[in-house]
Design a protein around this nucleic acid. Structure first.
Lengths: 221, 221
DNA sequence: ACCTGAACACCGTTCAAGT
DNA sequence: ACCTGAACACCGTTCAAGT
């Protein structure tokens, strides 16, 4: 009975999985700054030092939490018959995951070579290969797509770091208002864009960006 | 003589500008975690509380430092006769700025609507307009390009957070080696990519990605 | 108006001590 | 082997007190 957490249903035993799941719960509710080892220990009814027996440090914990979410997303994405569709579905899956767990955005974009990113890279890469992009251009095509996805990821991450009591459309309106007050000569374009800001749909926008890059990718086939 | 810092050369008086410049110095040498109000106060030979008279908080200070660098980059970029070239030059300017001041990467991608980002948005937007993209597609085209730039930004930011004693090519080799040990079935593509990783040039790669998006942008003209 | 520096309320991480 | 919780070495920020 040395490994009781395998053989019985005791919920007391700490494990990396339980820690990661508790972390995700805290992250979803309170954001990255809300995830402290003290808060985690209190939720898991243990001492803060106990967590270090299972997890190296906070950075590793955040990477593990991100991987847990992204692994779920990728498992749920079926490979489409048209590779372009696979890319779109993967991209939208990541988009929706960031919307559900906003802290993932910062995590993905701040560490592009962690496991979670590799899962995305693998799926996108396979699809780009299936499109017929030649070997020497693969790297370029794939990173362009990944950059697009992660760029939006961080954009969303920023929006999600807002206080919870601020409405999203209020926030967009506030940004638009701020832009409208910029210098008319120096910021002519931004001021024009301000008018379009409140009405636009992030998800549609995101997909349109992916499609734009796909046109470029197809051009090198 | 109420505003001595305007009329004479005294270097003692604190000002937001001096604080920002000192911050950039610390950030370049020690990274974001090295920038503490105590380190800043010591460098400026003042008390840590004094800084708060000129700067609201650390987040604002980081945004101001980022804006200071990006403003310099944008001022140095001449508008090219071919709008596509303007986009390329702006993008490369941002790329080089991130290479010189790596902390900017995280800053840009974590707050896409700060002043520094707006400066970039304005230049890119004007050029996309000049290409002849119709009004309704402007937003999509511009954000796709910005996402590409910021995606790479954060990628570089990650690489720059490495300890200073690690060589860059050693680091790439280490990543390639780690990738090569991944599951051959689950990570077939990533393993193939690993071989190309050590040899590739970031800057060329980056420009190739921009060009890919430009093909897409031109397609909706 | 501007600066000082101690004090406050936190952090992540470590580690002797327990079981 | 795994857990406890006090302790350490930091942070950002505030604020009474100075000039």
């Amino acid at each position: 009975m040395t490994r009781r957490n395998l053989s019985n249903g005791r919920h007391d035993a700490l494990s990396e999985e339980r820690i990661v799941e508790a972390s995700i719960g805290i992250l979803d509710r309170d954001g990255v700054n809300g995830l402290t080892f003290r808060a985690l220990a209190s939720r898991l009814k243990t001492g803060s030092g106990a967590i270090y027996w299972h997890v190296a440090d906070k950075q590793t914990l955040l990477a593990a939490a991100t991987d847990h979410v992204i692994a779920g997303v990728m498992a749920a994405v079926p490979t489409q018959s048209v590779p372009q569709d696979t890319i779109r579905v993967v991209a939208l899956g990541v988009f929706d995951a960031i919307e559900a767990h906003p802290w993932i955005g910062a995590q993905l974009s701040s560490n592009p070579w962690q496991r979670a990113s590799l899962r995305i890279l693998e799926r996108i890469g396979g699809a780009v290969q299936a499109i017929g992009v030649p070997e020497h251009a693969l790297f370029n095509a794939v990173t362009a797509l990944i950059n697009c996805i992660f760029g939006v990821a961080s954009q969303h991450a920023a929006a999600s770091r807002l206080p919870r009591d601020i409405d999203r459309s209020d926030h967009l309106a506030a940004i638009a208002a701020a832009w409208a007050q910029l210098d008319p000569v120096e910021y002519a374009f931004v001021r024009e864009l301000a008018a379009q800001l409140p009405g636009h749909d992030d998800r549609t926008q995101f997909l349109a960006g992916i499609n734009l890059v796909l046109v470029g990718v197809e051009s090198i086939r």
